[in-house]
Every structure is written in C-alpha cells, then in structure tokens.
Computed example of a mutant assay.
Amino acid sequence: MGKQEIGIGLVGSGFMGRCHANAFRAVGGLFDLPLEPKLSILADATEDLAQRGATALGFARSTADWQALVDDPEVGIVAITAPNVLHAPIALAAIAAGKTVYCEKPLSTTAASALEMTEAAEAAGVTTLVGFNFLRNPMIKLAREIIASGEIGEVTGFRGRHAENYMASPDAPHSFRTDPAGGGALADIGSHITSMARFLIGPITQVQADCRTIFPTRPVSPGSTERAPVKVDDMTHALLRFENGAAGSIEANWAATARTMDLSWEITGTKGALAFSQENMNELLLWSGTAGRSGYTRIESGPAHPPYDAFCPAPGHHLGFNDLKVIEVAELIAAHAGQGRCGPDFREAYEVQRTIEAMQESDRMRGWVSL
C-alpha cells in the first residue's frame, strides 16, 4: 500500500515556481517522507499562463483564480511564489482555510502586514515556512553547530554580503523589484544575508544603514525608451549590533559588477573564525588557531554533513541550488505531518522584515535605530 498523499497547490509558475515544482517532484525519491506530495493544482495570472505552467511543471489542474486553489479540498499545502504584493492576501486566505503555507521571501511588503500574517498563522496553529533556502545548505548547518559548540570561542564579529549583478546596467528595466512598496536591493537580497546573520549569530538589536541609488532612472519596461525615476536602493551598507554583544556589517548590492552570487560572510571569534561564500557553496572555511598552523582549513561537504547523504554517498560531488529547495520541502512535508518543526517560519521571517525596515528607517534618520 502506497503512502498517503498530500495535495500541493502552487501559485505562480515563474522561476521560483519552477524551483518549488522541481522540489516537490524530486523530494520523494531522496527522502523517506511520511506523505507523498501530489501536484494537484497550479494558479497563475491568466488561464493561459496557468495551463501552460501546469503542463510544463506536472500539475494535474490549473486555474487563474488563486482563491479557488486555496479553497480546493485536495490541497493541503499552499506554496506561494506570486509577486510580493500578493503574499499577504493568499497566505491569510490559506491560513483561514487551515492549510499549511509555504511562502517565498519576503513574507510581505511591510513588517506590519508580515506581523498580521504571523499572528494569524499562530492563532490558527498552522505550519508555515518561508523560502530562505540558502539556510538549508549543510555547510551553514555545520557552521551553526561549530559556533554553538564554542569551538571558535565567543563570537565578536560578523561581516556579510549579498552582491549580484542582475541590476548592474542602468538599462535594466523597472519591475516588481523596483516597486517602492516592497522592492530595492535591501529588501530583495539583503533579506537573505540578514536571515543568515540571525540564523548564525542571533537577534540583531541595533542598525545603522546607508541606502544608495546608483542609477537614478531605468526604462519603464523591457525595451522601452521611456525612463522613470528609481525610488529604491541599488546598494545598502549597514552596521549591526547583536543581542549577544557581537558587532558587524552587511552589504546588499544588486548592481555589483562581475558578481553573480556573492552571498558570503566571515565570522570572528575569540578562539577562531569561519568564512563562507555561496559561490563555493560546498565549502566552509575554519580557522581554529592551532599552534604552528596558519590560514583557514577547507571543510568540503560530504555524507558526514546531513542531509548531503540523501543525495550522494560520496564526498566532493557537490550539492546545488535546487538541492537546497528539495531539503527545504522535505522539512516542510515532515512538519506538516507533525514530525518536527520547520523554519524559518512566519515569525522569523517577520523578524527579518522588521530588521530590514529598521535599516531603511536608519537611512532616513541618518542614525542608529533600535529594534
């Protein structure tokens, strides 16, 4: 007798929608799950988009009405990869229907609406997960374990960066990313390095930020000669103070010429240090201060770093971006079935968003802001 199925409803069939669909298709062959995901229904902006997305991604049915997806009795998990402005209404409807909600970051366009979603989910007792999938890297889990063990001593400093080049041209057009309601480099990719800092070091209590717009105008749409002002940041630098006494900084930059995926950080402690870059995501660097040795030791990911072993029995064969999404989905399905918890949940995603908004407020005030 086969496993009981759990129906998946996916809203959005763009890049992240494809990542979600791939993860739900692949996860059962790699992890021993309590439930088997069934790709039930896909919703998109139009009937045509939805039908084409459902066919391409393997969903049984399609709709142009996300509310119909949420209300569908076959759907147990609602996965949201729609534009940011739709996260709140879809999630709130899914919570009201008692569904598990799997939402891409950012949770919402404002911390206030993110808090509303969080409190609704907690009151309803539903499982929630937000797609900060870089946290699923076994090397990041190992780094957290090393820090918690005291191996590098008391953490004193954190230096983090998320830099990419997809907006490095002044002719990169406006999109949802440049919408003042929820856009900008800090909100778009700064949330990733902020979530990483909180995951590894802990709560951030004070921030001071400088947000810069590099290109004052951009084309209103792809190929257009009409240009409109840019009202969000292309680059932000922020100083941080952590609850545990550590200090640090982050940079969020989507106009970083030559950089494609520089999600990187360095952590210093009183006995050692750690360093990581997503561009070399299967490596963690550790400096332990052993007498007579200098420089970092490279730790390469392998079966000793779960759940790498679910993918490959041999070290050095490397995980990739989509594998992190599969790990994320495995944790989501287990939590939905009552086998442990998954995170970051809505509460943690709200804290990340609250931190981002404190940085934006700091830039406006030109001073430190306490959370």
Rank of each mutant, 00 (worst) to 15 (best):
Y102I: 02
A43M: 00
A94M: 01
L240C: 02
A120L: 12
E351R: 14
N282P: 12
S149Y: 02
C342P: 10
G7E: 01
Y102N: 08
D188C: 11
G53Q: 04
G17H: 06
E164L: 05
L107V: 04
S221T: 11
V130T: 14
Q353D: 00
L57I: 00
A56K: 14
T270C: 06
P219E: 03
G53F: 01
S108Q: 06
A228K: 10
S224P: 06
R177N: 08
L57N: 05
A88F: 10
A60Y: 06
I95M: 02
G14V: 01
A79N: 14
R218V: 04
H305N: 10
H317K: 15
T156P: 08
A330F: 06
P180I: 07
I333L: 09
R298G: 03
G28K: 01
Y308C: 03
P138H: 06
I41P: 00
E5S: 06
P313R: 12
A335N: 13
A123G: 05
A330C: 09
F134M: 10
P34L: 01
G343P: 10
L115G: 01
V329E: 07
Q278W: 14
M281F: 10
I189M: 08
A349R: 12
M365K: 15
G182K: 13
N22Y: 09
H162T: 08
E154Y: 00
